[in-house]
Amino acid sequence: MNRPQPNEYPAWGETYISKVNGDIIEVLEEQVFTIPALFERNKNKENFAYADGKWTLKEMLGHIIDCERIFAYRMTAFARNEPQQLPGFDEDEYVANARFDERNYEDMIEEFSALRKANLYFFKSLNDTELNRKGIASNREISVKSILFIAAGHIIHHVGVLAERYEVV
């Protein structure tokens, strides 16, 4: 699958899309294993935040899970030709209201894996027509294919943040 072109997504999408190298489905499949393993290796840091007011490792995982759901919904809606605009979301408000600190960390790790595995069935089912369909989310036009790349690149971005600021390996 070819990379999305800049006219298929808002400018902010480049931050994530540019991080994806190789076959997009292979990258998404690899994340089913690498992301849970990363969080599992660092379970002793689940409540660590690198500075006051920053998310804990557990909150970061929760944010990744929330985004996995949101990206999958947006792809589904636009692949099915949804004519309505979809709302944006404030990731800080989502984390603040999610009660991730009350959740079981291991359950959250498994939740990400289960979500991504389920979503992969959908992602792989999309044909070129569906991948190229566009819709409006957060007041910006975006293609299904772009969201697919953003979903992978968003996680790559956060893995970089985890390595740099949380000293997670």
Score class of each variant (00 low, 15 high):
E111N: 12
E106C: 04
I65N: 10
A77E: 07
E59A: 05
L148C: 12
G53R: 10
D23I: 06
P6V: 10
P4I: 05
H154E: 11
A152V: 08
F71T: 03
A11Y: 03
L131T: 00
R74H: 07
L61Y: 12
E111L: 14
K19I: 02
R165E: 13
V144C: 00
Q31L: 13
K54E: 15
F123A: 08
I64P: 07
D90S: 02
E82M: 13
H158G: 08
N97D: 09
E26M: 08
P87D: 10
P36F: 10
E93M: 09
R80A: 11
A96L: 07
R140G: 04
I17V: 15
E102F: 05
E93P: 00
D92E: 07
N132V: 01
R69H: 09
R116Q: 08
I35P: 07
E8L: 06
A77H: 02
G135R: 07
A72R: 01
N42E: 14
Y121M: 05
E167Y: 08
Y121W: 01
L57Y: 06
S143I: 08
F33N: 09
S138V: 03
Q84S: 15
A137L: 09
E141G: 06
L61P: 09
G13L: 06
G53L: 11
I70S: 01
Q85W: 08
A11I: 11
A151L: 14
N132A: 11
P87C: 06
K117D: 01
E14G: 05
D66N: 10
L162Q: 07
G62N: 14
N127M: 03
Y73S: 02
S146T: 09
I65T: 09
N127P: 03
R165I: 11
A79L: 02
E14P: 03
L131M: 11
S125T: 02
D107C: 05
I25H: 05
N81V: 01
A49L: 06
A118M: 12
E68N: 12
L115F: 11
E111I: 04
P87I: 10
A72N: 14
N21H: 15
A37H: 09
E40W: 06
K54Q: 15
S143E: 06
N119M: 05
R41G: 14
R41V: 03
R69Y: 08
